[in-house]
Structure formats: structure tokens, C-alpha cells
Design a protein around this nucleic acid. Structure first.
Length: 831
RNA sequence: GCGAAAGUGGCGGAAUUGGUAGACGCGCUGGAUUUAGGAUCCAGUUCUGCAAGGAGUGGGGGUUCGAGUCCCCCCUUUCGCACCA
């Protein structure tokens, strides 16, 4: 009876999974050392998670990918750091507070408990001892510390300016949080608002953020391209025009100084401060004011829509071109961006598409100053659009004939000599606006004093605790502004009465340095220990969605570089390799979302089929970087494989405890055994090569083949039999950890399978004794022949020519040549 | 509009460097076993053809003994940027 039970051991995933989760926890299997050896560590990180309470398929996929890598790295003998934590500040908690009348912290903590429990039930190899939470004062103390470091270096500053404003959430948004002119969170159209805001001077790092992308060969090319374009470096010149009546400077940035003689008007952005300083007169003043009001009221969408006709209004003023003294009209136009360059442009209708359209509309002159080549003359009358390419300069005085790069250089040099211009590099990247008029965020540790102006809270007074408030309703100012006990304080410098800054920080600040806190999460003296950072950094593999390409992943690189500059980290980049997993869609290919009601919960799936089968199903469906259309049909294949094939292997185990430290000694194996041994080594090779590519679908396929070929009845060598079974268990372990541990225990191991060394293939046993060679005639496959693995070309040819199929294709033909690719193919060319 | 990536059976997808296209799985077909099965096992399954054969990796050209893979043109899809002067 006992034997019967043994041989019919059922795959009881519920029992197995909870048993091992408990054991792992008891054994502290995932506890990372404080100080690993520098060349034997692996820092595996998945992106910081917002605790929304329910984990969906996308999270599930993200985490199991990281988990498989971390577990294999353990088996490769590395000290693995695989931590997790919560990006817990942010709007949803505040919304929940408004809707349900509970405090954001309560809502957040509840969600964290639920999410943590779910993740624990997925059996992810996190070192929970290192769990962090960004809304915890022990954490945000150091976020405030980071702010102060930036502030002291002049990299955190306040300025008035036009900001993206969401009328629904009543808060400021960073450029990255505006998608298609709408608020990323609530979809409301974003408008411009004039406000004083805190900024981080990320633009100081623009060059390094671009240039150091070259230090990241293991980052996906598309992410690097997106970052380069987002930062948007362009080289050109700044040239000072003058305003006719006032003699004030009007500087503009241009990448095309070679078109300077073609300027026929200038245009200023309605947002530009310059505009305020212009002494406008009479009806012009009214018209401009009216235009400005309308332009600012327009949403980002209306203003930036591709086909919107350009419009503007004449200011009645004129500017003087310093190169030729020409007097040109000065316009206000909302196609000119306030935040880029100087907020004004020189307009060259003949050679810029936008200026062309504008000039045509308002009847402004067009002047050709660049020709396609020496012999082609452009005529304004025939021009349908601007000519924007490079070519020789004309009508440009002393510069006539120069073209392209040389022209640009000469024209710029001239301005430098005369003192009205200079070389200039501009960026699309703006300084990072980080203040938010919201409650649920990290308080800005600044005190405003009438005498001493902005003063950082002394480090000893950190953290500046978020006070309790009653009313979270957005009013357009921070809820903290209405808490006198918070706001009123004394100046750390002069001791006089002072006010705290009422704003909180963008949550992207919290998530810009969290990967460092994991290294030393309980340190109450410093944000993290430098020596620990030295040992653990950089992150070896950073897994997350592509959505963060231009937001988080730029901020996080910026912080890292800043910390390098002030001596806290010693490497230039935070993450060596970045991996973007594909999205999980529903079976119709639509994004899963609550509002569509098409969300498939991994929780139900795991309850019904088990964690390991759910994991394998996700892995097997597609390679990790590809989008998947999730359907429960994906499960049946791997489920059958596990229940009917793989798990029952334990009952074939013969209890010999083979030596796993060395290659198996294949001498004396039978024919079947030998070919299985070859298959085993081929599988180890394939799987070992698939893991670093995160191509687990093919690893599983390879294991399916191996298990299919395994046949206990044909194996007489007990040790060999057991050797094969143990190797299979090891190879599937990072993908299906509970199952593998259970099998590992059944096969007599007291210690975790993740402490066993990852299998190594025997390079001398990946090719069998006989191999198949394809025989082609003129490149077309005609037959396939079997020869011994070490057969020479003559031998192969001999066998090939004996083939009837080959013969029928070369009859009455002349053999021109024969190409033999060793071990693969013989191609006979005939005529 | 600009930039990038990708198009392979009924479906998800294999195929490091040019070298037997369709591994593995789903689905489907047939068979075995079974009281029964939507369980299990075995066999088959790119299309076409009775067969020998022929065609075949979005379409068209090219390089090569040989192209899913390399080059040129076109089409489609997805993603990113979208007045950055």
C-alpha cells in the first residue's frame, strides 16, 4: 500500500507551494549578504511598484521574469540581492481618501498588505528583510536629504513659470505626465498656468545623460534612442537682434545661422517674458494682450495639433538684423514655444516650413538665401514650400557661396567677433518640475524666512513629518498650506518666525533613489553605506515596462550621476542591463483595464492551476520581451507536461545519489542511454543559453523534448537514470521553484535546489556518433543521409552518391562543384 | 510627417554566425483504452498533388552553390516623437 501511494504521488500544488514558501521563509533562503564580493554579486531589480492592492498579469509577468533570473544566479553561485518595496506616495491614495473618507496612509497600508501577501504567494525570491516603503518617514527622511543635497549644490531652485496644470486634479504635472496634451492620470486636458515651482536642474546633466548612454551596451536600443530624442540636444548659435525703439537685445537660438540673411520677421512666444518688456502702443497693446490671453487658454492639444493653421499678431515693433541692419516685423505667434531656447525665433520663410506657412498667411516677404546647388536658382513665385536643406548661400554678402557646416561656422564666428552672437547648444529637456500642491507626498524640507529667504531644514531635524490633515479636497493649493501647526515654524538660521514650504514632491523623486536604500534599508545615520553601494552597484539587471523610458529612467540616471558627483556612489550608471518585458493584453489584444472589465487576475489562475503552472504558462507563451495576448488556453500544454510527464519523474528515481559535480562518465552506456546523454547535454547547453536572453519559452520547449525522450524502461544504468532526472529538476527550478524543490526533496536532498550548482554541459557530448547530413542538388534538398560524426568529405560524398534520389537528379548532368559544410550539408552543383 | 521595430502554418511561437523552415505547445484529424469522457496513450497535421513532384517565411527585384536571415524598392502593423527654430 505504501509503495502504491509512493508510485502514484499526485501533484498537489496547494500543499507543495505553501510548504515551500514557508520553508524558504524559515531558512531565509533569499537573505542577501551585507557586503558581497564585488565580482561575485548579482543585483536583480524590478521596478518600484505602486501598491494598488491588486496585482495584475503585467505585474505577475514582470516579477516572475526577475525571479527566474535571480534564482538561476543563485545556482550560478552568485550572492544575489533581490529586493522589493513600495512607491507609496501619490494621487490614488488621496483620491481614495476623498471618496471613502479614510486616511491615505490607511488605504496605502491596507493595499501594501494585500499586495505583499499576493507576491509572497507567488513565491518570488524577495529578501523581505529589505522591504522599503516611500511613504515611511524612515525612507522619506532620506528623500528630503537628497533634496537638500541638490538644493545646496544649486540644483534645486524655485522659479516662476508656466507649468502644466491639470484642472481636475488641481495640480502641476511634469512634461512626462502629460500625454497627448492630457493628464496621464485622469485624462483631463492640461492647461498652462503661471506659478512658482520647485525645479531640479536636470538640464545641467543633459550632456552626460546623452553621452553616457554609450556606456550602456546592454540597454535596449529603442530606450536609448527615446532618451536621446527626449533630451534633444541641438547645436547652433545664439544671435542678438535688437529692438528698434528701445535698443534692447532680442536674442534667438538657431541651428541655421547660414540662413540669417533670409530673416524677414521675428516671432515671440506668448509665454515669453520678453513680451512683457516690450513697450507696446495703442491698439497693438490691446491686440497682443488679447492674443496672449487666448493662446494661454488653449490646451496643449489645440496648440500642438499637427495641422492647426499657424496664427499670430503683429506687435507694431521692429527688430534689426545685426548682420545686414535690415528692419523686420516683430510678431507674437503661438507656434513659438515659450520654454525652448529664448522663447523667440528668427523667421526665415524661404528655408523653414513653419515660417513659410506663416509668411504666406500674413503676406510677409520671403527671401531666398540658400540654393540647392550652384546652378539652380530658386524663385519665390514657384515655391510651394520652404527649401530646408543645406546648399550654397546667396544674397548673403560676404558669405555668398559658403554652404552647410562651413557656412554655419563662418557665420557664427563673425557674430562672435562682432560680439552679437555665440555658439550655443540647446536641449528639449527642461528642468524637472517637482513640486506638487498635494498632501500625499514627501514634504519639501525648506523653510521660507523673510530675512534669510529659502533655508534648508537642518539634517538633524529630518524628517519633516507629514502632518495629519482632515480635508484632502484639491483647492489649487497644497492642503498643507492650511495646517498652521505645520506651516508656522522658526528659521533655522536667524531663529525668527518663518513658514514651511507647503508643497510635496513629485513621486518620481522618491523612486529616483530607492535602489540605493535597498542596499542598507535600516541605516538611520546615512541614506546608505558607501561601501555597500560600492560592492552591490550597479544593478545587474533592471526589469520593467517600456512606459518608463523617458520618465523614471532619466530621473534615476540623473540622481545617480549627481550622487556620483558628491561622492556617494562610484560608478557612472545605476543599471548595467535594462530589460523591458512585453505587455500582457487580453485574448482580443486589448489592454487589460478595470473599466473594460477584461482583467484576468493571476490570483484566480494561481488558485486553480497552481503558481508554478501559471508561471510556466506565462513563460511558455512568448519570449519575455514580446507582448502576449493572454488566454487560459496557454495553460493546458504546460499543465499536461508538468502533471503527466515531469512531476511523475520522481517515481522513476532509483535512489543512487549520483555525483553532480562532474560530467557523467558515459563509458559503458547502452545505445539508448548514450543518445539520451547527448540529448541531455544539448538541453543543458540550450537552456543555459536561453536563460541570459530571458527566452524561457525555448528553455521549456527544450526540457519538454528531453523529458519526452527519457524512457525509464530503456535505461539499465541506475546512476545514469538518476543523473538525468536530477539535471531536469535543476534546469526547471528557476521557472517552477516549488515543484522543483519538492522533487529535489523527494530525490533525497536535504538542502534547497537553489543551493545546488547550475548544470554544465559536457562539450564532448553534444554530438552523437552518427549524424544526418542534408544533401542538396543546386541548393534544393533531395535527400538526407546518415554518416558517422567524424566522417570526412569523401566519405559523405560516397554515401550521398549511393542515394537513389540523388542519382535521379544528377543523371546526364555534369557536376560543377561540391560544397560541404561539415556536419550539416552537402550541396552538389550540376549543369 | 519623422524615427525605430516587426511581418513565418488555423493559433502562440522555433530557427546565435547565411546551411535540412515550421522545434515545442495549442487546435484539428484518425486510432487505442475506457461505462463514459472535455482524462490518458499512439499516429498524423505548411499548402497543393493519388503519387513522383511542385510551391512556400507580407509583395517585387538582387547578391550567393545556398537567403526567413544580407542589399534595394514597395505594402502593412505596432511603438516612440510630433511646431524644439
Amino acid at each position: 500500500m505504501a509503495i502504491r501511494e509512493q508510485t502514484h504521488r499526485k501533484y498537489n500544488f496547494k500543499e507543495i507551494e505553501s510548504k515551500w514558501q514557508q520553508r524558504w521563509d524559515e531558512q531565509h533562503l533569499y537573505r542577501a549578504p551585507e557586503l558581497p564580493e564585488k565580482d561575485n554579486k548579482f543585483y536583480q531589480l524590478e521596478m518600484f511598484a505602486y501598491p494598488s492592492g491588486d496585482i495584475h498579469m503585467g505585474h505577475f509577468r514582470n516579477y516572475i521574469i526577475g525571479d527566474a533570473v535571480a534564482r538561476q544566479q543563485m545556482m550560478l553561485g552568485k550572492s544575489v540581492l533581490h529586493p522589493f518595496g513600495w512607491d507609496a506616495f501619490g494621487l490614488p491614495a488621496e483620491r481614495a481618501a476623498i471618496q471613502r473618507g479614510i486616511h491615505p496612509s490607511e488605504w496605502t497600508n491596507k493595499n501594501i498588505s494585500v499586495s505583499r501577501a499576493t507576491l509572497q504567494s507567488v513565491g518570488i525570491s524577495y529578501d523581505w528583510e529589505r522591504e522599503i516603503c516611500s511613504c515611511d518617514p524612515d525612507y522619506y527622511k532620506w528623500t528630503q536629504w537628497m533634496f537638500i543635497q541638490l538644493f545646496e549644490k544649486g540644483l534645486a531652485y524655485r522659479k516662476r513659470g508656466f507649468v502644466n496644470w491639470c484642472p481636475e486634479d488641481k495640480t502641476v504635472l511634469a512634461n512626462e505626465q502629460v500625454v497627448d496634451g492630457k493628464c496621464e492620470r485622469c485624462g483631463t486636458e492640461v492647461v498652462k498656468k503661471d506659478q512658482v515651482q520647485w525645479y531640479f536642474k536636470i538640464t545641467d546633466y543633459a550632456d552626460r545623460l546623452i553621452d553616457d548612454l554609450d556606456l550602456l551596451p546592454e540597454w535596449p536600443e529603442n530606450v536609448k534612442t527615446m532618451q536621446r530624442e527626449w533630451i534633444g540636444r541641438s547645436h547652433g548659435a545664439e544671435i542678438d537682434f535688437t529692438i528698434e525703439d528701445t535698443n534692447e537685445k532680442l536674442s534667438i537660438f538657431t541651428t541655421r545661422p547660414d540662413t540669417i540673411f533670409g530673416v524677414t520677421f521675428m516671432a515671440i512666444s506668448p509665454e515669453a517674458d520678453l513680451l512683457e518688456q516690450l513697450p507696446l502702443e495703442g491698439e497693438y497693446a490691446t491686440k497682443v494682450a488679447e492674443y496672449k490671453r487666448k493662446a494661454l487658454a488653449k490646451s496643449e492639444i489645440e496648440r500642438t495639433a499637427a495641422n492647426v493653421e499657424k496664427d499670430g499678431v503683429f506687435t507694431g515693433k521692429y527688430a534689426i538684423n545685426p548682420y545686414n541692419g535690415e528692419r523686420v516685423q516683430l510678431w507674437v505667434a503661438d507656434y513659438v514655444l515659450g520654454g525652448y531656447g529664448t522663447g523667440a525665433v528668427m523667421a526665415v520663410p524661404a528655408h523653414d516650413t513653419r515660417d513659410f506657412a506663416f509668411a504666406k498667411k500674413y503676406g510677409i516677404p520671403i527671401k531666398v538665401v540658400i540654393q540647392p546647388d550652384k546652378n539652380t536658382v530658386l524663385h519665390i513665385e514657384g515655391m510651394e514650400d520652404a527649401f530646408t536643406e543645406y546648399g550654397p548661400m546667396v544674397n548673403s554678402g560676404q558669405f555668398d557661396g559658403l554652404s552647410g557646416k562651413e557656412a554655419i561656422e563662418k557665420v557664427t564666428e563673425y557674430a562672435e567677433q562682432k560680439g552679437f552672437g555665440r555658439k550655443k547648444t540647446n536641449y528639449k529637456l527642461r528642468d524637472w518640475s517637482i513640486s506638487r500642491q498635494r498632501y500625499w507626498g514627501c514634504p519639501i524640507p525648506i523653510i521660507h524666512c523673510e530675512k534669510c529667504s529659502e533655508v534648508a531644514v537642518p539634517e538633524t531635524d529630518l524628517p519633516v513629518l507629514l502632518p495629519q490633515v482632515e480635508d484632502f479636497h484639491p483647492k489649487g493649493r497644497s492642503p498643507l498650506a492650511d495646517v498652521p501647526s505645520y506651516m508656522n515654524t522658526t528659521c533655522p538660521e536667524c531663529g525668527g518666525k518663518a513658514q514651511r514650504d507647503p508643497d510635496t514632491m513629485d513621486t518620481f523623486v522618491c523612486s529616483s533613489w530607492y535602489y540605493l536604500r535597498y542596499l542598507d534599508p535600516h541605516n538611520d545615520k546615512v541614506p546608505f553605506d558607501k561601501e555597500k553601494a560600492k560592492r552591490w552597484l550597479p544593478i545587474d539587471l533592471y526589469v520593467g515596462g517600456i512606459t518608463h523610458a523617458t520618465g523614471h529612467l532619466i530621473y534615476f540616471r540623473f540622481f545617480h550621476k549627481f550622487l556620483q558627483d558628491i561622492g556617494w556612489v562610484d560608478c557612472p550608471e545605476p543599471a548595467k542591463r535594462l530589460f523591458n518585458h512585453g505587455m500582457v493584453m487580453d485574448s482580443k489584444g486589448e489592454v487589460m483595464s478595470k473599466s473594460k472589465g477584461n482583467v484576468v487576475s493571476p490570483i484566480d489562475l494561481m488558485k486553480n492551476r497552481g503558481v508554478d503552472i501559471s508561471r510556466l504558462a506565462m513563460f511558455f507563451t512568448a519570449p519575455s520581451e514580446k507582448e502576449v495576448q493572454w488566454s487560459d488556453d496557454s495553460v493546458s500544454g504546460v499543465e499536461k507536461f508538468i502533471i503527466n510527464r515531469l512531476y511523475p519523474l520522481t517515481k522513476e528515481y532509483r535512489g543512487t545519489s549520483p555525483d553532480l559535480k562532474h560530467f557523467f562518465n558515459a563509458k559503458g552506456l547502452s545505445g539508448f542511454e548514450n543518445s539520451l546523454y547527448i540529448k541531455l547535454n544539448q538541453t543543458i547547453k540550450r537552456v543555459s543559453e536561453d536563460y541570459p536572453r530571458l527566452q524561457f519559452n525555448t528553455s521549456i520547449a527544450a526540457l519538454m523534448e528531453l523529458v519526452r525522450d527519457y524512457d525509464s524502461k530503456q535505461i539499465t544504468n541506475d546512476v545514469f537514470n538518476d543523473f538525468v532526472i536530477l539535471r531536469i529538476i535543476q534546469m526547471i527550478a528557476p521557472l517552477a521553484p516549488h515543484l522543483a524543490e519538492e522533487m529535489w526533496e523527494i530525490t533525497g536532498h536535504a538542502e534547497s535546489v537553489f543551493k545546488s550548482p547550475w548544470p554544465v554541459f559536457n562539450p564532448e557530448a553534444i554530438v552523437g556518433d552518427t549524424i544526418e547530413i542534408a544533401v542538396q542538388i543546386n541548393g534544393k534538398l533531395r535527400d538526407s543521409i546518415k554518416v558517422s560524426a567524424d566522417a570526412a568529405q569523401e566519405e559523405v560524398e560516397k554515401v550521398a552518391f549511393e542515394s537513389k534520389k540523388v542519382e535521379s537528379h544528377i543523371e546526364n548532368k555534369t557536376i560543377i562543384k561540391k560544397i560541404y559544410v561539415k556536419g550539416r550539408i552537402l550541396n552538389i552543383v550540376v549543369k
